[in-house]
Design a protein around this nucleic acid. Sequence first.
RNA 1: GGUCUCGUGGCCGAGCGGCUAGGCUGGGCUCUGCAAAAGCUCCUACAGCGGUUCGAAUCCGCUCGAGACCUCCA
Length: 491
Amino acid sequence: MSIKENKLQLYNSLSRKKEVFEPIKGPHVGMYVCGPTVYGDAHLGHARPGIAFDLIFRYLKHLDYKVRYVRNITDVGHLENDADHGEDKIAKKARLEQLEPMEIAQYFSDRYIDNMDALNVLRPSIQPRASGHIIEQMEMVSKILDAGFAYEAKGSIYFDVVKYNKKHNYGKLSGRNIEDVLENTRDLDGQEDKRESVDFAIWKNASPEHIMRWNSPWGSGFPGWHMECSAMSTKYLGEQFDIHGGGLDLRFPHHESEIAQSVAANGSEPVKYWMHNNMVTIDGQKMGKSLGNFITLDEFFTGSHKLLAQAYEPMTIRFFILQAHYRSTVDFSNEALQASQKGYEKLMNAVETLDKLKASDTNDFDVAQWNRKCYSAMDDDFNSPILIAHLFDAVKIINSVKDGKLKINTENLELLKTAFNSFTFEILGLRKDEKSQSGGELSAKLIDIMLKIRHEAKLNKDWATADQIRNQLTDLGVQIKDTKEGAEWQL
RNA sequence: GGUCUCGUGGCCGAGCGGCUAGGCUGGGCUCUGCAAAAGCUCCUACAGCGGUUCGAAUCCGCUCGAGACCUCCA
């Protein structure tokens, strides 16, 4: 499938509508997604944008777009909400654990990348770190100052939202009206240096005990909350690029402020399509760091959390997330995860069955039509749940062909194999469980010997022996399936 | 308080004016020595109340309920 014959639509948070995707400079596509702040282990909520934008990245590449995908790692910035001294989250963690801040950031970013690898999330083209782009951020702060949309106060630089809003529209992304916001903003501590509560720091003066600091024209300090994404996206994707993604919770103030910063500094709208993934919920509430109701990905993989009934394979997690549309919330529960696990196993079994399927002269299934439906699902704002439903339709066909209840000819079988595998592995990014490939050659041969003995026992109607072999293999985790062609097994 | 989103069967989750996805679970049947697997099949739906329409889960209004953002957050 090439770009030309395809009609991809995606939901733009800015217009709040689905729009036909037309990259600024096709076939090149620039995509920036907000990554994690690395001061703790990634939890299920972090898996959502990881997987959602991985799906988008994979599909765009499948359509032959040349995608440069940038996902940042935030290793500086982000103040504690209640810290009067403007202490950095990472710096705070470092102080508490008596480590270099960069030691903390390195440790958790390594673990984050490991988790994403486990989930089969492709590595982005560039994973820039905020701490490595302080100069770019300072340059952007200067540009905003020069443009007159920022002011200095006690060594900090604040974005002048009110002034900006007179000329541009601050609130266009989040649907906010600044006048209303000004009236309704709650009183917060530590805002005494700002002219207005809606103003935000783009450079922050570092208090003496603050450990992460850089020299700047405005004194020793560190970049403000939203600067890094503006600076790094501009650096790697240009002043205007195609897609900016992130969690829905970042829409305001983070993304709203990014727009303002870029417009103030560069004079142009930075992003054509804003895309936001919805949240993972637990008991109907957002799973999040601040609420403390999160379960880390490692805990899922090992089952080591009191709310988990069992350990879950990374691919179960991935499949679980892909079974919901990225703009809907997904609610965590053991029941839902176990359902996903079974569904995923069913799909993987079909992959193996399909591989061994034999073609007939006649044909009962129009694979080309089915293939088009799969593309339509993806073209409709990356509707992975619909795609998965179509895959299960094909699973039914595959199993029926295997049972001899349906026929499929060579041409259709080849297309089915290509398309089914492409959608399952290349686009949805699923992968066969390690465990189904493990076991080793010797075990496989031993199991085959056992099954041969069982087969002989069955021919002699020695059910006791046959069942003993089956039961003991089952206890070891080897599942026996008797088919017309003989017994098959899987781990 | 302001802005916005959502309420679908036992569970998860699509659809978003007519043709009523899919997965998991439960019941029945087929196949099989039995079982598993697989196939077929059945049962529970569109929060409530009005309205628009020939026709609404889908559009509009109200009520109730849940959530998100307004503060760091994926």
